[in-house]
Structure formats: structure tokens, C-alpha cells
Write a protein that binds this DNA or RNA. Sequence first.
DNA 1: CAGTGGTCTAGACCACATA
DNA 2: ATGTGGTCTAGACCACTGG
Lengths: 249, 249
Amino acid sequence: MTETRLDAVKLDGAGPVYDQIRRAIRDLVVSGEWQPGTSVPPEHALMEQLGASRMTVHRALVQLAREGLIIRRRRSGTVVATPPASHAMLDILSIPEEVRQLGQAYAYEVLARTDGRPSPEVAELFGLKRSDKVAHLLVVHRADGKPHVLEERVIHVAGVTGLSDEDFAGTPPGDWLLQHSLWSQAEHAISAIGAGEEQAALLDIAVGEPCLLVERRTWNQLQPVTAVRLLYPGFRHRFVGRFGPYGAA
Amino acid sequence: MTETRLDAVKLDGAGPVYDQIRRAIRDLVVSGEWQPGTSVPPEHALMEQLGASRMTVHRALVQLAREGLIIRRRRSGTVVATPPASHAMLDILSIPEEVRQLGQAYAYEVLARTDGRPSPEVAELFGLKRSDKVAHLLVVHRADGKPHVLEERVIHVAGVTGLSDEDFAGTPPGDWLLQHSLWSQAEHAISAIGAGEEQAALLDIAVGEPCLLVERRTWNQLQPVTAVRLLYPGFRHRFVGRFGPYGAA
DNA sequence: CAGTGGTCTAGACCACATA
DNA sequence: ATGTGGTCTAGACCACTGG
């Protein structure tokens, strides 16, 4: 357990004191000056050094611990953490928003809608009973007139209100659901597959063309709400995210 | 601006008071009892109702605001937020860890290494000068003996120490870099492409087979560290993440 | 102006883990 | 036993902003 130099912590006078303390220590950690495993001075030492109250120092340290830069334990004190495994945060925007951010004109078309009972595969995928009512939707979203993504969606009718009266003429199903349903948990999967015959025709691409497949299932308090498969032609679509080792940058 | 019922906030006596308050209000929001746009009682009202000090109430509300459930403004008060656009958190594990979590045996092989100057494409991709030194690596990672992912990597020699003495015989480059370099920012992109001839041969798949392409570029304080392209045969690989609308579940 | 949240203090008691 | 962090209080002053 290496020592750390207390007088290395310097405030810059900008903004709240707790944030000055947080940034000062953060900079010492990310610059490598305080290596992983070295001990951070205890709160009372920082209080004296910085002329701040313990609550203020504490607030800075708690936030750094939440961000994963330091690890705090009673009695044994605070140490610099080893950098965590990286994680990628990918924004899954609503599709209209996604297209508009590309600077292209958005349009969509509901190609098919069937209301009824779930097929065995859908029921299993989703943990539904065969007797539950579901709506199936097939939607193509266009950017500047060209197919952008193909959406296949199943909605659990009991999980949302007002579904039977909605024809999705004005709002695509994804955005409508965001406004008319609650959800508490979701599961995403991303994989690559080749386009099937029907899919290729609807997306105006060749059969077997590589596509990104984004699958999302959504629940509210363990009750299924919706499942969706989004098929993006891969050569023109990518998901991008920017961030640092300790979270969004 | 609808009203909210103050007496709906009930503590359960479990854990710290600030956390009881946080959970009580969170439950009212996610259950839909307090709809988006309704105003949350001001701190002094919650103090009286709950018999807690203002700092304690404040702490709970600050955390809820950080989580995006409520929006706080001076003078106009606190309101329930409308649910944010969803985001997907995808863990990008180290590849050995990824394979072991699948319960398969991990192995890797460095197929090629060249040290020298960057090609024009690499230099542009990475913002390097032609005069900077880089190392190129081609690595195949195997799971239970079968190719799992193909790694093409460029390392900026000036960004890490000890690179020239390392032969990557004991540790694959990705894990070695995690231990021997700092990074402060990264950019990821995920797309789908068909395998090229050489790639297909190395991955033991058919040419044109859909693959997930994960590209990551990493910087430390604006200085490039490494860029990597990971090519996963798509039919057997997927990234999965679970979370709620307000963050990891 | 007045009501709201943002910050900060000085002090207190408690919980926990280790020497 | 003691030093650490975890929580909580009562009060204060300030910053912002809508009426």
C-alpha cells in the first residue's frame, strides 16, 4: 500500500467546493499520479488540508467511489481502484430521431398488422400463454425514401392501454409505446445475420446481405410489454458510442 | 401541473433514511402513481412529513434527479420527469474472459506482427503522423479450438511503455494493454459486414458470411493509444445487456 | 419579493473491520 | 481499542427565477 502525497490535492476555486475536491482527486487518479492500490488520505486529513467540513469532503469521495475510481472501506480506509472492465454505452434512440440525426427525411409504413394469439415461437420467446392476446406489426422505416430498418414487433395487449384503438397512422409503434406504456426492464441482443428473401425484398437489398439484428424485449414488473426485432442493412448502418473507462465521457 | 399527495410517501424502516425516502419516491414514480409532469413536494414539506432533516431529504432527491426520475429547478420546484430515451449498456469484456464466461476453453495465436510506420489509411483513421511508430498485430482467438474472433490491432508505440520487449506469448494484446497503458476515452462502433476471403479462411467460415464488426479506438488525453477491429462470426455471437429505463437494472 | 433548491458547517453518534 | 467511513441534524447563507 503505497503512500500518497496529501499536498498534491489542489483546489482551483471553480464551482462548488465538493466538486473542486472531486476533480482534484480524479485528476490525480486518471493521470496515474496516484496509482491503483495507493491509499487516499482519510477524510479528516483532507478536511484539514483543504479547510472544508467533513460532509463536503465526504460528498466528493462518495461520488468518486460511485464512479469507480476509488474504493472505500471502514477502518481500512480509501484506496485507488484498479480500472474496471470497459463497457460500451450505445444509445438506442427512437428510430425517427435516429434518422433525423443523420440529417435525412424520415418516413415509415405499417406493412401489416394482425391481432390475435401468439404463435408457439412467440409465446416461448416472450414467456406468454397461448391464451394471451398479442398484436403483430411489420413496419419499414425509410430515410430519404430508402429503407432504413425493418421492424417486426409483438405487443402484449394486456400490457398497454388503448392499443386496439390505435392505428399507428401518426406515430410509429416504438414511439407510441414509449408514451403509452411503462417499462422497468429490457434485454437487448445484437448480432449479425444475412437478409432472408422477404426481408431483402422489403429492405431493397440482396438476399444474404449482412445485416445488424437488434432484438429488444421489454417488461414492466415482470409482465411482458413488447418484443421487437430491428434489421439494419449493415454496410450503411452502425452504432457508435463514446466514453471513458469510468463511464460516459 | 397536477398535484401529488404528500402522505403517499411512506418509509419502510429498512436501511438509511435517505435511501428509504429515495425508494419511496422512486416507487411512486415507476408505478405511475406520480405521473410525469406532476410536482414533487418541496424539501421542507417532505422534512415535516417524514421527520427528517433537510440534508437527508435533499440527498434522496439529488440522487433521484441524477437517475433521471425527477427534474429539479430553483424556485419552480421539482417535477416528475418523462422517461428518457433508452440506452443499451453492452459489456465489452476482455476476450479471454468472454470465452470463459461461455464455458469454453480459451486459446489465442498471434498470426502476424509488424513494427513500423502507419499506412496512410491507418494514419488517417487514427490521426497519426506518418512518422509515428506503430505496431500491427493480427490475432485469432479460439473457443474450444474453434475460431471465435479475429483481432486486427494497431498500437501507437509512443502511447505505451515496454511494447518492443513484449512478444505477447503469455497475454493477448488487449489484456496486456489494459495493464500497461492508461486510457481516458474510447469510441466504439458496431456494424455488420460479410467476411472477406482472408478473414473467412482464418475464421473457418464461408466468404460473405455475416459477421459482427466491433471497432474501438482508444485515446489517453487526446493521444492515440490503440485501434482494434474485432470480427465475430455473427450467427454464433451476440452481445447481450439487461437494464431499465433509468440505467442498469 | 419570496419560495425553491444548492451548498456548507460543526458537531454528533453509529457501524464496521482490523491491529 | 481505535481509526475509519456512514449517517444524520439544525442551522445558515446563497443563487436563481417566477409572480
